[in-house]
């Protein structure tokens, strides 16, 4: 029972970080029906900014995270304008390739600037546990992660449903042509999607670093689970991304924990199996709309 609880808490905690990054992926996908392979690296950049602002400049950690979100958002808006917009959105190969180029570039810049050593970030949440029972510890970090992700999902919901730019974004993502006809500035709106995604991704990275160490390859390990979460949720559903994130987190912790024959190295494999199974059985994921099928 304790072991079960331990795995449950573990799954929830990591699931929250997958959910955050998956939401970022979904935002981009909604905007451009593109899977942004550089999303994890943008988030990585955000995490290093938190390091610079919070540790080296000594700002309060919450302020540092917020500032890092703003900076990566502006940066991502610039990337969208310069590297993404010139390409035909319906032709996927060049766009995927550009995001791969960004992936390599950003990752390597991070390594050049901050080196390859593992760094630690200060926590936004109190130390210690909210609840303990045997080996099962529900730490404040886990609680904080889950709460932050749920709050972010709520904030995104409000933003997309109650604000003008949010509504424009939803219009563009559901029908590009008719949004153009009613006079929405498409480019601006998509740029907004990129900026928002980068901010959410940075938050996700800041959360993930609380349980992992910050190094240039860290996001790659998280990203593949975020892909699985987004695919499971349906790639164009924010709620789906959150649910998908937690499911993937739990599948990983329970699967590796209970199925003895599954070597722990194959956690990543579990994520890939989830992606393939979902896309084969239900290509629109759990909550995605039919539209997604038209690739």
């Amino acid at each position: 029972m304790d072991l079960f609880l331990a795995r449950l808490f573990d799954g929830l905690g990591s699931g929250a970080t997958y959910a955050a990054l998956a939401m970022a992926l979904v935002l981009i996908f909604k905007a451009t029906t593109l899977i942004n392979f550089a999303q994890g690296e943008l988030a990585l950049l955000g995490a290093y900014l938190v390091l610079v602002l919070g540790v080296e400049q000594g700002l309060p950690i919450v302020v540092a995270v917020f500032l890092a979100m703003v900076i990566t958002a502006v940066f991502a808006a610039g990337l969208e304008r310069v590297f993404i917009r010139p390409f035909d959105p319906s032709d996927h190969l060049p766009l995927v390739i550009v995001t791969l180029g960004l992936f390599l570039g950003i990752n390597s810049v991070a390594g050049v600037i901050w080196g390859h050593g593992a760094r630690d970030l200060p926590s936004m949440f109190p130390d210690g546990n909210l609840y303990s029972r045997g080996v099962a510890n529900l730490s404040w970090v886990t609680v904080g992660n889950v709460a932050t992700v749920l709050a972010t999902a709520g904030a995104l919901y409000l933003l997309l449903n109650k604000t003008k730019i949010g509504l424009a974004f939803r219009a563009v993502s559901s029908n590009l042509e008719s949004s153009e006809l009613v006079g929405i500035n498409i480019g601006r709106t998509l740029q907004f999607g990129w900026a928002l995604a980068a901010a959410v991704g940075t938050l996700g990275a800041a959360l993930a670093i609380l349980t992992l160490f910050l190094e240039p390859t860290v996001m790659l390990r998280v990203l593949i689970f975020a892909f699985a979460a987004a695919a499971l949720g349906g790639l164009d559903s924010l709620g789906g991304a959150v649910v998908g994130g937690f499911v993937v987190g739990l599948v990983r912790s329970m699967g590796v924990g209970y199925l003895d024959f599954v070597p722990s190295e194959l956690g990543v494999g579990a994520a890939v199996v989830v992606i393939i199974a979902v896309l084969l059985i239900r290509p629109t994921g759990l909550f995605g709309s039919e539209q997604v099928q038209r690739v």
Binding site: T33, F37, F227, E265, G267, V268, V272, I275
Partner: peptide, 19 residues
Amino acid sequence: ITGLYLALITFGLAAVFPS
């Protein structure tokens, strides 16, 4: 599974291999 989804899956395979 075509296009981007295939990219996603194959990327997953690349991520799995080293383990």
